[in-house]
């Protein structure tokens, strides 16, 4: 504990590592919400992604490479996203409620498959930290930035990519148009349904990937309901970030950093000779409180709330 620099670099490393699943899931949700669909099923999709990824990689399952696990998570997440799109776009179901349905289904189905196919806790050797020549050996930055597994880098790389797609491509323009004014978009020939199908499916794939990052890159295990609410946090972070990928990343980092830091405060509390006695449950609350408090003080953000969020679109027939 005496090596303060070492500990701080570890805090940075862990913050980036544990922000990864939030980042994947939240970025996917940004696309869905920007096009006007609230997907509250992220939690369930993450669990399904986490299970399929680890099952594909594990010796108890198919014993394939971690990349095959990622592929499996993308596929299962995409399929669930597609189903969500069908329900919320074609069938125009209420999005909050169908999302909760997907969450329940994902929780139940992933646990059931886990029980039937695996029988007990699965562990794998998932994505390992990459060592970069020179960089990884740097003091402070080596630990903090250059000893991560590949999914961490992918997650952060997806932030600028998302910004670019949303703001600089015609697809991004369509997404925003569909979320802001679907009738207008429709009138200029954009298929609202098609765009929403794409974004919600994409969001599902990202949520699946978020689950995979938990199971085969961060924890390397699967346990029933292992996401424990992370999917809902990911949705909340989209609001925190006001639908901007950069701000969403800020929220994910803030939340992750606060979670890691409160662990260190607990550790510090239990050091011999430290007599401060903060009940751990009050420390565990800190990240959640912090997210709210920061939002209060960061008020003057420009609002881009998609006007058509949660509103199904039905074309006016001739």
């Amino acid at each position: 504990m005496t090596d303060i620099v070492g500990v701080i670099s570890e805090i940075v490393r862990l913050t980036l590592l544990f922000a990864t699943p939030f980042l994947f899931a939240s970025l996917g949700e940004v696309f869905a919400q920007r096009s006007g669909v609230l997907n509250l099923g992220v939690e369930g999709i993450m669990l399904m992604g986490a299970f399929f990824a680890i099952f594909v990689v594990s010796d108890k399952g198919l014993a394939l490479s971690p990349w095959a696990g990622v592929l499996a998570a993308l596929i299962v997440g995409g399929l669930m996203g597609l189903a969500m799109a069908f329900v919320s776009v074609t069938l125009q179901a209420q999005q909050g409620i169908s999302g909760i349905g997907f969450t329940l289904f994902g929780q139940g189905m992933s646990s059931l498959l886990f029980k039937v196919l695996a029988g007990g806790v699965i562990t794998v050797r998932g994505f390992q930290p990459i060592t970069f020549p020179v960089l990884s050996g740097l003091p402070f930055f080596g630990t903090a930035l250059f000893q991560h597994n590949i999914l961490v880098y992918i997650a952060f790389a997806l932030v600028p990519i998302s910004v670019w797609v949303l703001n600089r491509t015609s697809f991004g323009l369509q997404v925003r148009a569909v979320g802001q004014n679907p009738a207008a978009a429709d009138s200029v020939g954009v298929s609202v349904a098609r765009v929403r199908y794409i974004t919600v499916t994409l969001g599902g794939m990202m949520a699946g990937l978020a689950g995979a990052s938990l199971s085969i890159a961060i924890t390397n295990v699967f346990q029933e309901n292992m996401t424990a609410g992370a999917g809902f946090i990911a949705v909340a972070l989209v609001y925190f970030g006001a639908w901007s990928p950069w701000r969403v990343m800020g929220g994910a980092l803030l939340f992750s950093a606060a979670s890691i830091l409160q662990n260190f405060v607990q550790i510090f509390n239990s050091l011999r000779g430290v007599t401060i006695n903060i009940p751990p449950n009050l420390l565990i609350m800190v990240p959640y409180v912090l997210i709210i408090v920061v939002l209060i003080f960061a008020r003057e953000r420009k609002r881009v709330e998609p006007a058509a969020l949660t509103k199904p679109f039905e074309r006016e027939e001739g």
């Binding site: 369930g44 349905g101 997907f102 969450t103 329940l104 289904f105 994902g106 929780q107 139940g108 189905m109 992933s110 646990s111 059931l112 886990f114 029980k115 029933e224």
Partner: peptide, 8 residues
């Protein structure tokens, strides 16, 4: 878990 999936 079956039941939860079914409820979903």
């Amino acid at each position: 878990a079956t039941i939860i999936a079914l409820q979903g």
